[in-house]
Write a protein that binds this DNA or RNA. Structure first.
Lengths: 112, 112
DNA sequence: AAAACATATTGATATTTGTCAATATGTTTT
DNA sequence: AAAACATATTGACAAATATCAATATGTTTT
């Protein structure tokens, strides 16, 4: 996954309403009308947001009759998260002074 | 972590150059001059990008003499990734027709 | 003190973005 | 066929963004 593709997905998630939408899609697909009910935007604005999410590859669209159902694209989302997991801070297992931190290192494997 | 905070971090990662920067910071802090060498932007533009990354909370700045050292903020980055892991697709352990997928589900825990 | 160096800020500009009203497209119901 | 419904597209506009040149700030070296 290229830097450009990552940037595109992050751009799709760079708007508060689109973050809300993606969070709503956790474990259930939703039609546009259901999403619209929960956001304070007009229908054309929602349609615009859904297009950005779909174009980024993060969300799929399934048309059924007059409805459009949206869902998270598992494979794409998984790849995105895998890339983020490759990014790692400079922290080791514990702080420089030897004390325990209140959180574990952001790196999955704890160092190379 | 609010939708707004997530959007802010994603906005920081919504530019290809900034994705490159964050990837460069994996496991090592870097001064601005080192980052500048590897990107095709002017010094003021880099300074602008570093400010956006720092303001998002994803990156820390440490000043030492005339240098500014940047690093990934482990705790913040980890929290961000934890939020993404809460977001999950509608897929189960296998495809609807019972066949195996070429990738595992994007959900960490495989369902609630 | 002066020069060189690293970084930040300011000002300007072209481009992109989020939003809405109006309208179009396509589907289902009456 | 007409009305109602769900969604998409178009056009417009204010706000935000990425970029650079010029300049400022602060530090180190000479």
């Amino acid at each position: 996954m290229t830097d450009s593709e990552i940037a595109l997905i992050c751009k799709a998630l760079s708007d508060e309403n689109r973050v809300k939408i993606v969070r709503m899609l956790t474990r259930r697909e939703l039609c546009a009308c259901e999403i619209l009910e929960k956001l304070a935007v007009t229908q054309p604005t929602l349609s615009h947001h859904m297009k950005i999410l779909a174009d980024s590859g993060l969300v799929s669209v399934r048309k059924e009759g007059k409805w459009s159902y949206y869902a998270i694209r598992c494979e794409q989302f998984q790849t995105f998260k895998a890339v983020l997991n490759e990014i790692c801070c400079t922290d080791g297992a514990e702080s420089a002074d030897g004390s325990q931190r209140g959180y574990s290192c952001c790196c999955e494997d704890g160092g190379e």
